[in-house]
Design a protein around this nucleic acid. Structure first.
Lengths: 174, 174
DNA sequence: TATTGTTATACTCTATAACTATA
DNA sequence: TATAGTTATAGAGTATAACAATA
């Protein structure tokens, strides 16, 4: 592509704050994914650990509601965590259909280890920002989270897609 | 000293700027996905349109390299766009193996329509921020993009995963 | 009859490898 | 022999539906 048409001014998309947010967000998510991979975990495992650490005793149903995923999907994720002895399902005396979900001792330690790594990652990602600028960034983002009614501490990456009526005109058939 | 008392204070993760970035980024991405769905498009279709609008004449190979995806995957995506008459593959006289990728007239219009919708979305997402604060946000994010060596205008969501050696200890077998 | 957790199935998406036609 | 594009295949990931146990 010689020349690459100097006339075409960079359109709206790549310049705007929204695109930048999505771009940097995806980058951070990828980095985080790498940081938990050595433990045999995926980001959503860490997300579940995070929620359960702060809200112990949830049932699977209520956790699925909170995260916005299907209970059937949650089963496999909890199986993974239970196999690693990071969480446990405790029987509920009052209702024998439900389990109370709890983070184990090992799970708490894992959670803290992940937290430390996340701090280090943040240090790296915000390396070009001063302490004051980081605070500003966090403040602005927090305001967006509040105004957009995103559940604090819950990653939207969990949410089921279903959003718009995807006509799927562009479905790749062959 | 993991106290791990029942009243665990909100740990590092959900509070930090990194988590917020990932959280808001995923939210923006989901919103954008909804905004292009009515056209029968997915976000990566828009991403391709964006790149080709600014760099016309790329070959599929070089485009795949730029986006960080496998050429085989690109084929289906380009087929989708070509079926909708938004892009076209032009024969290259010098090398009959390659195609020069170009955005059609309709593709340019689509690209502009998407851009307008994106502006509107940004307006909504940044509603709680003043004009000056938006500029600050964009500036801080741009600095992160530069320092983290993210390709400007290219969304990392494209990139092939392979990152870390995922032992997959937590593979859900049954 | 309704609900919780689980299992089973189908569908989508993506990576890998094989294939063709040009060079 | 090497490269661009394509096709084919297989594997992961996820949504939907059916199921057993309990309320």
């Amino acid at each position: 592509m010689p020349g690459s048409s100097p006339q075409t001014s960079p359109q709206t998309l790549p310049g705007g704050a929204a695109f930048l947010l999505s771009q940097v967000g995806a980058h951070v998510a990828a980095r985080f994914s790498e940081s938990v991979a050595p433990f045999g975990l995926k980001p959503y495992h860490a997300g579940i650990l995070s929620v359960l650490a702060n809200k112990p005793g949830l049932t699977q149903q209520s956790l699925a509601d909170l995260l916005g995923i299907f209970p059937s999907r949650l089963v496999a994720l909890l199986d993974d965590l239970a196999k690693l002895k990071l969480i446990e399902r405790r029987a509920t005396p009052s209702d024998r259909r439900t389990y109370a979900l709890h983070v184990t001792r090992a799970g708490t330690e894992m959670w803290q280890t992940i937290g430390k790594q996340a701090e280090q990652m943040e240090e790296d990602i915000c390396a070009s920002l001063s302490a004051k600028e980081r605070a500003t960034l966090a403040e602005l983002l927090t305001r967006i989270v509040t105004q957009q009614q995103i559940t604090p501490g819950v990653h939207p990456g969990f949410r089921k897609l279903g959003g718009g009526s995807c006509d799927d005109e562009a479905g790749s058939k062959r």
